[in-house]
C-alpha cells in the first residue's frame, strides 16, 4: 500500500499541505476501502472519523419510517465527507453508503483534534480548509431546500 502521507497530498483537499504538517495529519490517517453497498457509518454512530474520498461515490441518506430512503447529498472523487469531527463527542445524523467501490483516506478525529490543540498553526490551517466546505454545503442545502425546480420554471 502507498505511503499514507504521500496519498494524502495526492488528494485535492491536502495537495498544498505544508511539509511540516504532513506527518502530523498522516499520523492520524489510514487507507480504507468500501465495497458498493457497504456503509461507511450509520445514523447515531459516534463521529470518530472523517473521510477524503479518493475514488468512488458515497450517498448520504436519511431514513424515516414508512418512507423510502432519501439521498440528500452525494460525495465523490476528491470530496471530503464529515464535518462533525470538529466537535468532540458528536454523532452522525445520517447514514453514509458507498454507491460503488470507494477508496478513501479515513482520518481519526480525536487524534487530529489533539494535534490541533498542541499546534494552533495546524489548527488554523485546517480551519481554513474546512470552513469553505462547510459554507458551500450550507449554500447547497439552502438551494435544495428552496426547491427551485418545483413550481417555478
Amino acid at each position: 500500500m502507498a505511503d499514507t502521507g504521500q496519498v494524502l497530498v495526492e488528494h485535492k483537499f491536502f495537495s498544498d499541505l505544508e511539509e511540516a504538517f504532513r506527518p502530523l495529519v498522516g499520523g492520524c490517517a489510514k487507507m480504507i476501502i468500501f465495497e458498493a453497498g457497504q456503509y461507511l457509518f450509520h445514523d447515531g454512530d459516534p463521529a470518530e472519523w472523517f473521510y477524503l474520498v479518493r475514488y468512488g461515490r458515497v450517498a448520504l441518506e436519511v431514513v424515516a419510517p414508512g418512507r423510502a430512503t432519501l439521498t440528500f447529498q452525494t460525495i465523490g472523487e476528491s470530496d471530503v465527507l464529515g464535518m462533525f469531527w470538529l466537535m468532540p463527542q458528536s454523532h452522525w445524523t445520517h447514514d453514509a453508503r458507498a454507491l460503488e467501490l470507494t477508496h478513501a483516506i479515513a482520518i481519526n478525529a480525536n487524534c487530529l483534534r489533539q494535534k490541533c490543540e498542541r499546534d494552533h498553526d495546524l489548527g488554523y490551517d485546517l480551519m481554513k480548509r474546512f470552513v469553505p466546505i462547510l459554507l458551500r454545503r450550507l449554500e447547497s442545502a439552502q438551494l435544495q431546500m428552496l426547491d427551485v425546480y418545483g413550481h417555478s420554471k
Partner: peptide
C-alpha cells in the same frame, strides 16, 4: 446530472448544480 433529492435507485449526483461546477 444532479438532483436535489433521490428516493429510489439513483447513482447520479445529489446536491445543487453549483457543486458540479466546482468539480
Amino acid at each position: 446530472v444532479t438532483v436535489d433529492y433521490a428516493n429510489g435507485p439513483w447513482h447520479g449526483h445529489v446536491g445543487s448544480v453549483t457543486t458540479l461546477i466546482r468539480r
